[in-house]
């Protein structure tokens, strides 16, 4: 079981300019590019990693934050295993918009049980000195919205980036384990011949 590599799709959502692409690039290629253009639509990179003995291919989907790219990005929400809600600590509006991002995701990803879906919250750009969002406010929001894990990251100086993505993986794996346990109770074994059926026909 643990030798098998599973593909996990995580998606980065958040306002334009909060650093979603930079986070992805920092994590996968360990590079930081100050000249990145707006992402148009979606982009993604894969990264193989091992978390707690599980081999995982993490497929990180980076999305366009601008409203005008909405129709391009939303079709790709479906099938996500985890959603990384991202804001920038030097931009309070991006923090306030997180609720909308969460709603948009749940709607377009067609999440069946939103309260159980693994979200992780990232406060990016902690290298910037002028903060507009305090750690306390962010933690409180996470607490109130479903007890999401919160990480303060900086794609620029690589603070907490790997930790955050690995946490996302752990969340997904934990979710899967829980569902794995649930499966036997919920399923019907189609291979077993129902006795009553034969007697009925005769």
């Amino acid at each position: 079981m643990s030798a098998k590599t599973s593909l996990l799709k995580v998606i980065l959502l958040g306002d334009g300019g909060v650093g979603k692409s930079s986070l992805m690039n920092r994590y996968v290629t360990n590079k930081f590019d100050t000249h990145l253009f707006h992402t148009i639509g979606v982009e993604f990179l894969n990264k193989d990693l091992e978390v707690d003995g599980h081999m995982v291919t993490l497929q990180i989907w980076d999305t366009a934050g601008q409203e005008r790219f909405r129709s391009l990005r939303t079709p790709f929400y479906r099938g996500s295993d985890c959603c990384l809600l991202t804001f920038s600590v030097d931009d309070s509006q991006s923090f306030l918009n997180m609720g909308n991002w969460k709603k948009e995701f749940i709607y377009y990803a067609d999440v069946k049980e939103p309260e159980k879906f693994p979200f992780v919250v990232l406060g990016n750009k902690v290298d910037v000195t002028e903060r507009q969002v305090s750690t306390e406010d962010a933690r409180q929001w996470c607490q109130e919205n479903g007890n999401y894990p919160y990480y303060e990251t900086s794609a620029k100086d690589a603070t907490n980036v790997a930790v955050a993505f690995e946490e996302a993986v752990r969340r997904v794996l934990a979710m899967e384990e829980r569902t794995d346990h649930l499966i036997p109770t919920d399923t019907v074994n189609l291979h077993r011949k129902p006795r009553s059926a034969t007697s009925c026909c005769s």
Binding site: N25, D33, T39, G41, V42, L45, D62, P75
Partner: peptide, 17 residues
Amino acid sequence: YHSSLASLNGLEAHLRT
């Protein structure tokens, strides 16, 4: 390679769909 990979992945996904 690295500067274009993510965008190419994305563009491919867009065009395919």
